[in-house]
Every structure is written in C-alpha cells, then in structure tokens.
C-alpha cells in the first residue's frame, strides 16, 4: 500500500458491503490494471487475478468487497466462483471490512518460540480487542497470521505493508503508541540488527 502519512488517531468510519454496491477501478488504478494485464500472455490473462485483487483491495481500504471480486473476474472473463476461491484461499485478502492499520502478528513456530504470544497478549490488552477484531474507532485490526517469512528476526509483526522485527512487548507497544499518536515508526529490526545478520553470541540473550 502507498505509505499513508501517519496522522493523529481520529475515529474512522468502517466501510461495508453497502458502500461498494458497485466497484470499478479508479482512473489511476485503471492505468495500473493495463500495466498488470500486459505482463501476461493473451490467453493467460486469468493469471492476473492475484495482482488485480490486490489492487482492488488497496483501493477499497484494505479489504475486498464482493463487488470488487465480481468486477475482477468479469474483467478477466473467469467464472465468479474461481475468483471467490482465490480470494478466500489467501489470508492476505480480507473479505470483511478492516481497520486502517492491520496488525498481523506472526504466530508460527519460530516467532512463537521467540515470544509472539506475549506480543499478542500485550497488544490485545493495550487495544482492548481480541485477535480478529477491529477497534471501535476503526484504526486497528488485530490478527494472528501464519508465517510471514521473517523467522530470522523473530518475533515479527506486519502492519499494513511494513515489517517490524526482533520485537519484545515494550518495543512493540511503542510502535503501536507511535501510530496512535501520529508519529513516524521505525520499520525493520527493533534492536538495530542489519538485515538478518547474526548477532554476537550473547547479544540476543541480553535482549
């Protein structure tokens, strides 16, 4: 998603299916659609379903209303059911309205071993919601996801398109508070690790 300049926490009205009775790509996205379709051979246009659904999801504020799936399948001339299957298969597509910031805590084994359950608990307590729920003001949606591929720097959390790694309760909550209060957040490793470079023998123990 295009980086949204972080603003002060003001309540946001969640959109619903009703808001998307019909869906069409915006002028700007229409250009991207053409660019995406060009990547695939003439008779293999159906392959464009993933990038197009993603584009549609970004346009709709992070989730995919039915009308968007219908529009994309129609555009690619594939059965509606095929589009619906793809959209339900990937957890990266949200079929229900979602907050402005989607906090995705990785719960797969490496992150779990490195304390993701504590992160989850801390976040749930702080935001007063459970996993899978959205805050009343529509700012945060919290979910636990399967491996997000950042095991080297476990535990990791993905917020919208950004990764936050090497977290502990404190550094994670700081990020959430930063977002709430409209400050810039620091992506990547919370302990200043370069990429996924190994730490000194006892550094990770100290952490």
């Amino acid at each position: 998603m295009k980086k949204v300049p972080i603003q002060k926490r003001e309540p946001i009205r969640l959109t619903s299916q009703e808001d998307f009775k019909t869906f069409s790509f915006s002028m700007e996205n229409e250009k991207k659609v053409k660019e995406i379709l060009r990547r695939y051979p003439e008779e293999r246009q159906a392959s464009a379903i993933l990038p197009l659904l993603d584009l549609a999801q970004r346009q709709c504020g992070g989730w995919l209303p039915k009308s968007a799936i219908e529009a994309v399948t129609e555009m690619l001339a594939i059965p509606l059911m095929r589009g619906y299957e793809v959209a339900t298969f990937y957890s990266l597509f949200n079929l229900n309205p979602i907050g402005k910031y989607h906090v995705q805590i990785c719960g797969t084994t490496p992150c779990m071993l490195r304390g993701s359950e504590d992160l989850k608990k801390a976040c749930e307590n702080h935001l007063r919601i459970r996993c899978g729920e959205t805050t009343k003001d529509g700012i945060f949606t919290l979910s636990e996801v399967e491996c997000i591929g950042a095991c080297v720097n476990a535990p990791a959390v993905q917020i919208n398109d950004d990764y936050y790694e090497d977290l502990n309760e404190e550094s994670f909550l700081n990020i959430i508070v930063d977002i709430e209060e409209g400050r810039e957040t620091k992506q990547g490793s919370a302990i200043g690790r370069q990429g996924s470079a190994p730490l000194k023998r006892d550094e990770h123990v100290k952490k």
Binding site: P79, M81, R82, Y84, E85, T88, F89
Partner: peptide
C-alpha cells in the same frame, strides 16, 4: 457450469 468451488483452505 462453473458454479461450485472450494473456499478457504
């Protein structure tokens, strides 16, 4: 009639 499908995973 491609009306049936498998949703979720």
């Amino acid at each position: 009639v491609p009306e049936l499908g498998a949703v979720g995973r």
